[in-house]
Design a protein around this nucleic acid. Sequence first.
DNA 1: TTGCTGATGCAACATTGTAGCATTTGTGCG
DNA 2: CGCACAAATGCTACAATGTTGCATCAGCAA
Lengths: 141, 141
Amino acid sequence: MPDTRPSARELIAAHGGRVTRARVAVLEVLGSAHTPLSHEGIASALEEGGETFDRVTLYRTLEWLVEQGIATRIAGSERAWNFELVDRHGHHHAHFHCQRCGRVTCMEEVAPALAGALPPGFSLAQAELVLHGACAECNRS
Amino acid sequence: MPDTRPSARELIAAHGGRVTRARVAVLEVLGSAHTPLSHEGIASALEEGGETFDRVTLYRTLEWLVEQGIATRIAGSERAWNFELVDRHGHHHAHFHCQRCGRVTCMEEVAPALAGALPPGFSLAQAELVLHGACAECNRS
DNA sequence: TTGCTGATGCAACATTGTAGCATTTGTGCG
DNA sequence: CGCACAAATGCTACAATGTTGCATCAGCAA
Ligand SMILES: [Mn+2]
Ligand SMILES: [Mn+2]
Ligand SMILES: [Zn+2]
Ligand SMILES: [Zn+2]
């Protein structure tokens, strides 16, 4: 049975973008990550794989992935964004930020449950639920 | 009937801090604001009142207020924090960020409703629900 | 009033991200 | 394949938002 998921190259081309070294590499990093990654984290992962890019190129690559709806940006620990693939989780879930170790964990089970309680006139584009506390691993020590 | 809310001076002293010009002024600005304010917004409001402080002093004052539990920090528009008094709303409510005008509105009616669905081992300190979209005023135009 | 300690101001630095522009590189086409 | 052209990259400079170190100032208790 063949893998039905599109390869990085196919995914990029399907969105009308050029298949560049940067996009392929970033997609592969995000695809094999199990938590949302910061720009910094992505750069480190790339370097371990022997690939280096200019800081700006990375920012632009991530921006493009978000514009295309391939990745999402979620508020991570202080002031830096974290990125993850959309198809990885279906992109409507909360995130848990551990105040001790700083890691961000996806919480598939916790739903915002807004119940359409917005005041009249307001329109919602996206909800972002971030939980702050201590993760299981940190609580053990 | 006397005002039962503590004055800025009393509030500061009750927390064991020195009653300084900066703390009193910032508390008054936050106390009369009807939306969360950014560091920038606070500085502007202070200047209109004829009070100016060093940028760093403002940061440290706000940091102190948050540490003392007097104010809270909520994620505002891109990369800057917004501040509001805790007692103003009881501090467990969502915030709406308008992607057009950038304003942040308190949503008393929208509750996170987490339902204690956290995975075992995780402990929650604070939940932060930020809604992104267009506010009523922007939707009218 | 005085002295101690916390708070402030100033300068320098850090982090995270953007903008402009020359150069390189993917891609479609002959 | 080899070209031409637009898209993507790299570099430099800049912007926004905070933070750190350190000398000075000022609240407050005695
Ligand atoms: Mn996630
Ligand atoms: Mn609020
Ligand atoms: Zn942790
Ligand atoms: Zn608006």
